[in-house]
């Protein structure tokens, strides 16, 4: 049987959902695979929703909103754009292809464009093949990665950075210091890397307690860096020493605090 991907679309009520309706009204054909979830605004798309959808085996996720400048809620769509940008960076670390997530602007009058982008995305996903997380036996490593990404996306730091991006770049902080887009992106990339790897460590040692050396090998990361993350995770109450083998402590994830 040919591969029929499962694609979930998060669409804003005012533009893209209306565009999807128009495609139907105009009888413009597109592949049947997409399953649309109507939201009031693409800005409602919490990164966690997308990661949860991938964790459960979606082969592709589309986020669609109004064109910039046309947002029914002024600029919820730009918030969506920032979130998708962050998500793609986060997902690229997990082993899942970030191309499985796509953001598109479709207006209420663009039924043809809606059909075009859905068709294009569906064919792209068919060419990519099933998600490693789809089906009966999801890839454990990738799943751990997505769970780590989800945990990172739930956490204060990334959320506050995405939520405040516009403010930080355009308005400045309380000291009226502004960051350039480049500088902000740098900060963001660093935050994504750190938050992701910490959570990845957490989910790895949730499966079985490991030493710093083992973790370092598993994650292909400098042992010093692993140790620094372990220290932070212990302080956050997420990790504890499980036991000491010889002189080597093995760390385990704690269920509390999450």
């Amino acid at each position: 049987m040919t591969f029929e991907p499962k694609i979930v679309g998060f669409l804003c009520n005012w533009c893209s959902y209306a565009g999807a309706d128009l495609a139907g009204v105009s009888r413009i054909a597109y592949p049947t695979n997409i399953r649309i979830i109507r939201l009031m605004c693409s800005g409602r798309v919490d990164p966690v929703l997308v990661l949860e959808t991938f964790a459960n085996g979606a082969d592709g996720v589309m986020v669609m909103g109004c064109h910039p400048g046309d947002c029914h809620y002024v600029e919820g769509n730009l918030q969506a754009e920032r979130k998708v940008k962050m998500l793609k960076k986060l997902i690229s670390r997990t082993g899942l292809e970030p191309e499985r997530l796509r953001l598109e602007w479709v207006s209420a009058s663009e039924g043809g464009l809606f059909a075009d982008v859905v068709r294009d995305f569906t064919y792209q996903i068919i060419a990519m093949g099933p998600s490693p997380l789809a089906g009966e036996k999801p890839d454990v490593d990738v799943l751990e990665g997505i769970l780590a990404a989800k945990a990172a996306a739930e956490d204060f730091r990334l959320r506050v950075l995405v939520g405040r991006e516009k403010g930080i770049i355009e308005d400045g902080n309380v000291y009226e210091e502004k960051l350039s887009q480049e500088k902000f992106d740098e900060t963001m990339d660093e935050a994504i890397a750190t938050e992701y790897i910490r959570n990845k460590i957490y989910f790895t040692i949730r499966r079985e307690p490991l030493s710093v050396r083992e973790l370092s090998k598993h994650l292909d990361l400098d042992p010093q860096a692993v140790l620094r993350h372990i220290v932070v995770l212990r302080r956050r109450g997420m990790v504890a020493v499980d036991r000491v083998e010889g002189t080597t402590p093995l760390y385990a994830a704690l269920e509390v605090g999450r």
Binding site: C41, G43, R44, Y73, R159, G163
Partner: peptide, 22 residues
């Protein structure tokens, strides 16, 4: 107006968007 952008951005996930909850 119920767009839900605040909820999707809340760093503490303290905001629930009615009728479109997580």
């Amino acid at each position: 107006k119920g767009c839900g952008t605040c909820g999707a951005s809340c760093p503490e996930k303290a905001i629930t968007m009615r009728h479109f909850t997580d």
